[in-house]
């Protein structure tokens, strides 16, 4: 069997990458950014972490404050630090656009982050060879690795580097750029790049918006259609439907998708095609978990690997029968954690 993990998704990145990142106009009465005092003295690990803390930088991929992440990494001593400049989601391009426009800032920020946690190698992970060529043109010194276009790219990259015996740490592209801004200019992280996509908006754009701006403003800036019936933040696979457009943009909001019609899946019984097991980057066999969870009393021994699930939902996307396999695995993980042998609801 050809060991190829993950699933190939239909990429729709071209539309939002055609334009440069645009700034969302801010309201008049909004408070001006308070710049931080510039740091003086030697730039060592402690100073970088303190600057990240003062600037309030949050890693946009996992929502962890950067200073906490760097402190943890300093303790773990990784060999390599990787800036994730690719987007797993088929219509998100915020990380790619940030890299294209701030290549040098991201490289400098990555070097700083590497210095803070003591990593010797710095690498920038991009999705495709085409993208890598483009970045090489901007900065020939950029040290690039390919993450590929299979979903979930981040987990698959982690797997690949782990198999190559590399102890790697991962950091977001925007966090890298924000770290450099914080150290060079004393600028706190107040804005984030968000991709707006979907058939419910007129213009697919990458927009730099202030953190805390309501989603409504962002969507209206891109020409929100009246017929939109579903707004998703995060990603089209693991994201969350928003019912109130006054919800603010967070540092972790990389993508907002407005759809006119919610996709409708017909659910069929499992046909045993094994696509879910092939898609899973964590070695879970989701159909088996689902089968076991359908029993009145699931046997915990048979729920193998469920605690390793990273909720990437690749299995659910891969399933041709439209079964919610991620839900089954999550339930199994909860069951296993709780040690509840008698009753589950």
């Amino acid at each position: 069997m050809i060991l190829r993990h993950g699933i190939k998704l239909d990429q729709q990145k071209a539309a939002s990458l055609r334009h440069k990142i645009q700034d969302l106009p801010t309201a008049e009465n909004q408070k001006k950014t308070e710049w931080l005092p510039l740091r003086k003295g030697e730039l060592n690990s402690n100073a970088i972490i303190a600057a990240a803390q003062a600037a309030g930088i949050v890693d946009e991929f996992d929502g962890v404050p950067l200073f906490r992440k760097l402190k943890k990494l300093r303790r773990l001593k990784p060999d390599m630090i990787v800036a994730c400049c690719f987007d797993e989601d088929p219509c998100t391009t915020s990380a790619m656009a940030t890299l294209r426009e701030n290549t040098n800032a991201i490289i400098a920020g990555l070097v700083l982050a590497g210095k803070a946690c003591g990593a010797k190698e710095n690498k920038i992970a991009v999705a495709t060879k085409h993208e890598a060529k483009m970045i090489q043109k901007i900065n020939p010194q950029a040290d690039l690795i390919l993450a590929g276009e299979m979903y979930p790219a981040r987990a698959l990259l982690k797997r690949k580097l782990f198999a190559n015996r590399k102890n790697a740490a991962y950091i977001g592209a925007q966090a890298c750029a924000a770290l450099l801004a914080a150290i060079d200019d004393g600028e706190p992280q107040t804005s984030t790049v968000v991709t707006v996509a979907g058939d419910g908006v007129e213009h697919w754009r990458n927009v730099r918006a202030r953190i805390g701006t309501p989603l409504k403003e962002l969507l209206e800036f891109c020409g929100l259609s009246e017929k939109t019936s579903l707004v998703v933040t995060g990603s089209s696979i693991t994201g969350r439907a928003v019912t109130d457009l006054n919800e603010p943009i967070a540092a972790t909001t990389r993508c907002v998708i407005a759809l006119k019609k919610a996709p409708n899946y017909k659910e069929y019984p499992c046909i045993g095609c094994q696509r879910c097991a092939r898609a899973c980057p964590r070695g879970i066999v989701p159909w088996k978990i689902q089968q076991e969870m359908q029993n009145a009393k699931p046997n915990l021994v048979r729920l193998t690997n469920v605690q390793k699930c990273i909720r990437c939902a690749a299995c659910t996307v891969a399933c041709p029968s439209g079964i919610d396999l991620t839900g089954a695995v999550r339930k199994a993980a909860q069951l296993k954690k709780s040690g509840d042998f008698i009753d589950i609801t």
Binding site: D10, L230, D244, A262, A313
Partner: peptide, 19 residues
């Protein structure tokens, strides 16, 4: 405009049993 609270995933799948 009323927004739905639909379940994930929100993308159109390429393979289904019927395909």
């Amino acid at each position: 405009m009323t927004l739905l609270n639909a379940k994930t995933p929100y993308l159109k799948k390429e393979t289904s049993v019927s395909s």
